[in-house]
Amino acid sequence: MITTEFSYQKAGSVDEALRLLAAAPDSALLAGGHSLIPSMKLRVTAASALVDISGVAALKGVSRAGDTFRIGASTTHRDVAESADLRSGSPLLAEVAGVIGDPAVRNRGTIGGSLAHADPAADYPAAIIALGAQIEVAGTSGSRTIAADDFFTGTFETAVAAGEMITAVTVPAATGVAYEKFVHPASGYAVVGVAAVVTVAGGTISSLRVGVTGAGPQALRLTGLESALAGKTADDATLRSACSGLVAAGDLVGDHQASAAYRASLVDTLARRAIARAAARG
């Protein structure tokens, strides 16, 4: 299928991208194109002008400053998955990136594009929430930082305003991490995915954050479970009783892939597995 017509420009810098974005009505950023192009081909989306940010060097790559890791918005899933810095100091994003789609999708798709697209079944959102990431955003009137908890505002909706763009994501060092994904066999997306970030001190859970994707209309955080497990040991019996009825099926999405009740049950199971695995590493 062929998209509607548009003009195409490659931005050389963030400032140029923002300027080009503002210059045309119905303009859109083009990063890896792996959400935008399929929907333009199906004519679900149309744009009059595409601003390609995949070549902006300042938006690419992973850097480390002390215990903080900064991932440029246009870093591909593959480069996140293979980042030696992330793998050693904060492996969750790298492990999540490695199970997105397939190798060709990972070679093109980017973290900034995935977060901006905010597909309710995308993988990164669960990890971003569990890590308490900060999302750096730039606009013509300056830059700001959005906390992961405030970032996703609805299905395919985020706190990024029109005319703004994501420039980077920062995450803390964390090794007690795990992502459990129940893969949809046809699409490769998550039917449900749960990410956990745990710190264990003296045998008990001293900090815990859990992010869920795929289950509801947007990615969510399980704050009730986090406080219920604070100070507890991460043994199987404790996790089994805590990870029960975590979300009400009535709040979840049911469709031909999985009923709401089935998704709710997956949240329980995957949360338990993710926390157990994360605790064993943390």
Partner: peptide, 29 residues
């Protein structure tokens, strides 16, 4: 396919396998 899922169109761009149905020729400049 029309949905970027089948992989029949995979080529290498700068050594990386990509789905050539999910990339504009202009991006390969």
């Amino acid at each position: 396919c029309d949905t970027s899922q089948c992989g029949a169109c995979v080529v290498h761009v700068d050594g990386r396998a990509v789905k050539s149905c999910t990339m504009f020729a202009a991006q390969a400049d």
